[in-house]
Amino acid sequence: MITTKDKIQAVEQFAEKVVEIEGRSLWQDARRRFFSNHAAVISLVILTMIAAIALLAPLFSQWHYEDIDWEALSDISVLGRPNIENGHYFGTDTLGRDIFVRTMQGGQISLLVGIMGSAVAIVIGTLYGATSGYLGGRVDSVMMRFLEILNSFPFMFFVIILMTLFGRHIFLIFVAIGAISWLDMARIVRGQTLSLKNKEYIEAAYACGVSTPKIILRHIVPNVLGIVVVYATLLVPNMILLESFISFLGLGVQEPMTSWGALISEGAQNMEIAIWQLAWPLGFLVVTLFCFNFLGDGLRDALDPKDR
């Protein structure tokens, strides 16, 4: 009896020490690796700045995104030029509206649409992939076959059908687009799950009688989060590009609201006489997409050490 008591005490003491040492978790390691990647950190800073400007700058400008400057309208190619004095920092568009405020307002829409679409895609894709991979067997092959069928649809077909169903509600459209662009995500997560599901801790959870949904949500999903985060940062720019493509076709946001894609589309029509109408929104779009790509690469290096 005494010996077991001693043993218990020893174990308790050891346990206290272990708590004091406090090992570095996977996420702390990843954070360290991420912050040593300068391109990724700079991208993150620039992205935060763009988001902050897009949100705040319209409050400080003397123009509103719907306002028409009748004076500039009389001669766009001269009076509509970028000019600090009359408040048109980026110039005006052909209707005399301020490009600076419109670019910022378009940025809000583009970023929001990108983030919302990706969020929907990620939730569905992760859950679908984890379920399919964890259950395995016949369920898995049926779920994967379904995915393959969805994959052979032309993507634009879905987009246009959704457009006709939802009209011009850009956010609804992007929630719907998110709901169909989770296919790659699901495939990646499934692959990861297959290798995870034979790990001891999953077996332990199963032996303890944890239910299947709970194993998937509490044990599988947190362990595939790394790859999900990486994929998310690469999905957001794709969504933004898709939105600008749709707006470019003239199917996206409704006037007087705008998005980067819509602004670029308008700018491209007047690029010979008023290049600033194209240059500013295009610059913001390209810088944002560049940053998301670098951020994604940085996160991949940080969270997926195998790939380096």
Partner: peptide, 22 residues
């Protein structure tokens, strides 16, 4: 390569016309 990804082809196409043709 990154530039090629972020520069959408609906921008590339008019820029091409501007440069090569106009």
């Amino acid at each position: 390569a990154n530039l090629g990804i972020v520069l959408p082809n609906f921008v590339l196409a008019p820029l091409c016309i501007l440069f090569f043709s106009i």
